[in-house]
Computed example of a mutant assay.
Amino acid sequence: MKAMETLQDLIEEAKIRTVFWALCIFAVTYILSHTSKSMWANIPISIILVSALRVISYEVEFRWRVSPIRRQTYLSHLEKKKLSVNDPRLSTVPPSSKWKKKIDSPLVEAAVDEFINKILQEFVIDLWYSEITPDMESPEQIRLLITDVVSEISGRVKEINLVDLLTRDLVDLIGDHLDLYRRNQSAIGVEVMGTLSSKERDERLKHHLMASKELHPALLSPECEYKV
């Protein structure tokens, strides 16, 4: 039974191949008929050409030739994209911080550095980071970020004129707030304000300030407070 199935498969395969090669020969014959008037005379030539192509396909391996110019261009493109050995993006060592130059005080620098190290050790490294990985690169990056922020604040504080801040700016700020409160108190009524609780007084002031568009945006709603 198995031999019969094998024989049947071979017959089917032979039929398929015969039809395939007949079509190939017919196609070649049809093409050659454009150069000659007799189509039957072209059949032997077609058989010879198809057989020759079949032999060549077994003996010769065809490949697409790679253009050396394109390869060279792509390699040059990769050379341009390649990072140098000294590129800071390849280095795991954090970049040197310039925060000490902005503070310019060894005692303050030492105190800030010690304070930040204690915060990192207590709330980051010992609390959760050490259980994830022993790598200390991320805490070092956090430390540099915090010291840069502290140094920036320190540099801006140095530029403040304390005499003008204490004798002019703060006095004007407090005076403006008192004047704003008295104007709204007069609009509500001094006697009415005296009968209200602190929470009710805040609500009345809030509505009057909203009507005059002098209320701080953060006090309009919890959403505005979050945005501010």
Rank of each mutant, 00 (worst) to 15 (best):
L180A: 13
E12Q: 15
L170C: 08
H77L: 13
K101Y: 02
P106A: 11
I31Y: 08
R183S: 06
V171D: 04
N86I: 06
V93S: 13
R70S: 01
K227L: 15
D104L: 00
K118R: 13
S154I: 06
P44D: 13
D87T: 07
E225D: 08
H77A: 14
Q121T: 10
V60R: 02
L220I: 15
T167L: 14
L23W: 02
P88C: 07
R71L: 12
L32V: 01
E191M: 11
P134G: 02
K82L: 13
L196C: 11
G194Q: 14
F26L: 10
S57R: 04
E140H: 06
R156E: 09
D9T: 12
L78V: 07
T195S: 15
R204E: 15
E5T: 10
R65M: 04
V112K: 03
I48D: 08
E122G: 01
P95V: 03
T18Y: 12
L83Q: 08
W99H: 07
L7R: 14
S84I: 02
Y181R: 14
E109L: 08
L162C: 02
D148H: 11
I132K: 04
T167V: 00
K213W: 00
A211E: 06
L127S: 10
I146Q: 05
K15S: 08
G155W: 03
L219Y: 15
K199H: 08
L32S: 01
A110L: 06
D135A: 08
Q8G: 06
T167M: 11
L120F: 00
T18C: 11
M193P: 03
T29P: 05
Q141W: 02
D202S: 12
S38P: 07
W21P: 01
V228I: 04
D172C: 06
K101N: 04
A27Q: 12
S36H: 09
I25P: 04
A110V: 06
K100I: 01
A111P: 07
M210W: 05
V93K: 14
A52H: 02
D176M: 07
T147Y: 00
K199S: 14
T195E: 14
S221G: 05
S212Y: 05
Y58H: 12
I31M: 09
T147G: 09
P68A: 12
R70C: 03
I153R: 14
P139S: 09
D164P: 04
A218Y: 11
I16S: 12
K101F: 01
I188H: 01
R168C: 11
I153H: 13
Y58L: 08
V150S: 13
V93I: 14
A22W: 04
Y30T: 10
K100P: 03
D179F: 10
H216F: 09
T35C: 05
D202K: 10
L145D: 04
S138E: 13
H34P: 06
I119Q: 07
P95K: 09
K80P: 07
E140M: 10
T133R: 07
H177V: 14
N161G: 07
V60Y: 02
E122R: 03
V192P: 04
H208Q: 11
E59G: 00
T73R: 15
Q185T: 14
Y30N: 04
S97V: 02
R201V: 04
L32N: 03
L144D: 11
R183C: 02
D148E: 15
E137Y: 07
M136R: 15
W64V: 13
K15Q: 10
